[in-house]
Design a protein around this nucleic acid. Structure first.
Lengths: 342, 342
DNA sequence: TTGTAGGCGTTATCAG
DNA sequence: CTGATAACGCCTACAA
């Protein structure tokens, strides 16, 4: 794994010699500092252009004893539009403050996340935004303790006292389920992911909230957790429909689950009889046919908010306490949510 | 735009003092070099952990006089799945060689692209992959001359002698149009973007190729260029349908154009009478209803290929000439392509 | 307006 | 095996 040496680049000293001035004068020109006469500055600029000089960021960072104007962004998968949108929001905000966002993907592999994080720390980035981090990472904890500015996006990190930005998983679910209750539904099924995943348990809690608000209690028969694929979701849906008291409405807590439910409803020919709301992460369920009501996260705003928190922390002398911000996920009403109980 | 100084971090000297050894010994342990006795190494490791030491990449890079183990990836928009997929492919390949991919978005703004590129150069990355670069960037040209390894993805950069990876824009278009001709169509419309955009002109050329292969010539009435939005595409489609010899088939050279065409065909009620093939960049047209035949780019492979070229260039002493690789775009047959002429 | 001296944290060289 | 010492390219402080 021998990395090739880069082509030798001219240094400030080289430029200085070429221009017949001192190194410091070159430095002044490069950094736009005052107190350089126009003719000298011009001569230096010419030499810079002639030699193709580019200031060495490593040396600069070393000498200034500051972090680079760079913010690290650790995401699960660059190809996933959700994380891409977060990145975009982050860039939008931080760019205005002179920062550049440098990102890497982890594919949800804790080892890769660790390596990436370490590289960012070694690069002495100004701050780090971590989207959907794997839990239990000591590295993050350590870094926070050592003063690195860190913001978690999408889910909080257990035991890491850093700023956190999430969607309104619980509140939005509660709201959507409340609608179904208002519509008259009394047998609402909940299909969600493993409760060990924070977002899954939040949505599960929101479901319970809505029922409790209406003085009801979740029917254990209608709550299926650990549904991790569209296939499992479809299977579970089939089972639910076959039960003695089949649900008149379904809440799918993830878009993949939603796809499975839709498929099963279609195959049973009841897609127009059973109400359906999907919590749409990607968003992936937004384009389903027939139109399915969804809760959509605002990934762009998630990223922007994370950027704002980070900038605030970076440009403030005070030691801010960890903050927690929720970005509203939006309920998108569609035909599937208007279906009433028989 | 004052960037806050990072929390002071322990240095090797600090660790050395703490462990009661020399600086060089710490360096040896950190870099896994031999010739350190176990007890000493253990003591050093303990100090490192106790102090939370992280080696400073800037200093390391400076002293070693090599590029960092980092590859820069400049994309138009991180939120765009096409670029995300390229990033993923790039990461897959370069990761195996110990590189990390750090990326930034330009939003197709040449100024931002320039700043990003400069930052990457200043950071002394090992190489740079540029996806859908704005043309005419002197920076790239200069960097190539100064030996920076650069790979262009999606379109070549005029006057920049670097490796380039593109999709088979021309050949795939030719093939798809040939199918329409085989199916009996003689009045095929072409809706494409501004010919100043490389991919647009390539697809336009592929269209001409197919006609020429069949001994035909493009009917100027049926070729509309500079179609830059779904709205314009819909308008153009309406006009074409109203002409004296309306097309029996349409080739839409971009997905946005395809959306507009579909909409117009729908409104005219002829979506089942006019054949349609869409060159699907994002891919965006893949999920249309009714199903539309598309040409889909393999963004993942585009990224992988770019990574391979870059690695090859990086790990080879020889000065490779600029190389040009085409990644096949795949024709996805669907009902809309099977429609024959009346 | 310009230049000199010293140091940033690490690695490479060479001596113990 | 271990440790001084000199770079690396730049910036800050302080002269001139």
């Amino acid at each position: 794994m021998e990395h090739r040496a880069p082509a030798p680049r001219p240094t400030m000293a080289g430029v200085a010699k070429h221009a017949g001035v001192s190194l410091k004068t070159v430095s002044r020109v490069v950094n736009g500092e005052p107190y350089v006469s126009d003719p000298v500055a011009e001569r230096v600029r010419a030499s810079i252009a002639a030699l193709g000089f580019r200031r060495d960021g490593s040396a600069r960072q070393l000498a200034r004893r500051t972090a680079g104007p760079i913010i690290g962004y650790v995401q699960v998968d660059a190809a996933n539009p959700f994380f891409g949108a977060v990145a975009r929001g982050l860039e939008e905000v931080t760019r205005e403050h002179g920062y550049l966002v440098l990102t890497g993907s982890t594919d949800a592999d804790p080892a890769r996340e660790g390596r990436l994080l370490e590289t960012l720390v070694e690069a002495r980035v100004a701050g780090i935004v971590v989207a959907a981090a794997e839990g239990g990472d000591d590295l993050l904890r350590d870094e926070v303790q050592h003063g690195t500015a860190i913001v978690c996006v999408d889910r909080p990190l257990e035991g890491v006292h850093c700023d956190t930005v999430t969607s309104t998983n619980r509140a939005s679910t509660r709201e959507a389920v409340a609608r179904l209750l208002d519509r008259g539904h009394r047998h609402i099924a909940f299909l969600g992911g493993a409760p060990s995943v924070w977002t899954a348990s939040e949505r599960r809690a929101g479901f319970a909230d809505a029922l409790a608000d209406a003085g009801l209690q979740a029917d254990p028969e209608l709550v299926v957790e650990r549904v991790d694929s569209a296939e499992l979701a479809a299977d579970a849906t089939v089972r639910l429909l076959d039960a003695t008291t089949p649900p008149t409405a379904v809440f799918a807590a993830q878009d993949r689950i939603g796809l499975g439910v839709v498929r099963a409803l279609h195959e049973a020919g009841v897609q127009h009889q059973v109400a359906l709301v999907v919590f749409d992460d990607l968003p992936l369920a937004a384009q389903l046919e027939p139109p399915v009501a969804t809760i959509v996260q605002d990934a762009l705003d998630l990223g922007r908010t994370a950027g704002r928190l980070l900038i605030e922390r970076l440009e403030t002398r005070a030691d801010l306490p960890p903050r927690y911000v929720e970005v509203p996920a939006r309920f998108v009403d569609r035909a599937s949510a208007a279906i009433g109980p028989p």
